[in-house]
């Protein structure tokens, strides 16, 4: 009988401490508008790979972190392919930030998922370099590597790989 009560007390204390931390935390957020393109690779048969330029895409991003762990951030993007087709996807993302002088380097990992008008599901790894400008404004350049093994837009028996560069502006909010 005492064991469930003890467990409930632990859970209550955990929630109470978490809420106390949340109240004490200062959240830092950032939004961004970027455009990118690059190289897309896809298998076309037995050991045969074709390459295309990645359709130009827009990336509307948001990220947030707390001051207690400013090097860790999570967020995501709304991604729109605009060249040759129009598609919409989201990219939930986790980032780590490391300062390098005035520049912030952000290794990142995401799960891109395009859902209209076709589907693409894969993984994304990247490195973002953030260059601060005046006030809350910054610019960034990112190198992204995407792999899409799943989705209705991937030909059967193939996979899609992208190596893209992304440039844009970031605003602290």
């Amino acid at each position: 009988m005492t064991r469930p009560l003890f467990a409930c007390a632990i859970v209550f204390c955990a929630f109470a401490s978490f809420e106390g931390q949340a109240l004490a935390q200062t959240r830092e957020s950032e939004i961004g508008l970027s455009a990118g393109s690059g190289l897309s690779l896809g298998g076309t048969g037995s050991a045969d790979v074709a390459s295309h330029r990645t359709p130009l895409f827009l990336d509307l991003s948001a990220r947030t972190s707390v001051d207690e762990a400013p090097t860790l951030a999570w967020g995501g993007s709304l991604r729109l392919e605009l060249e040759g087709r129009t598609s919409v996807g989201i990219v939930p993302r986790f980032e780590v930030e490391r300062g390098l002088g005035p520049i912030a380097l952000r290794p990142q990992f995401g799960i891109p998922f395009f859902f209209a008008p076709f589907t693409l599901l894969g993984v994304e790894a990247g490195l973002c370099a953030r260059f601060p400008k005046s006030g809350a404004l910054a610019v960034h350049g990112s190198l992204l590597v995407d792999a899409y093994p799943f989705g209705s837009d991937v030909p059967k028996g193939s996979a899609l790989t992208m190596v893209n560069l992304l440039f844009g502006v970031l605003f602290d909010v």
Binding site: S37, G38, L39, S40, L41, G42, G43, T44, G45, D48, A50, S51, H52, R53, T54, G84, R85, S87, F118, S152, D153, V154, P155, K156, S158, L160
Partner: peptide, 28 residues
């Protein structure tokens, strides 16, 4: 330069590279 030079525009790698009534199969 790598991206532009390596492009192989004749072959498809996604279904959306093709017209709406077509699909990509073995690069065509």
């Amino acid at each position: 330069a790598l991206a532009w030079g390596a492009c192989d525009g004749e072959r498809c790698i996604r279904h959306s590279d093709c017209a709406s009534a077509l699909e990509c199969r073995i690069g065509r």
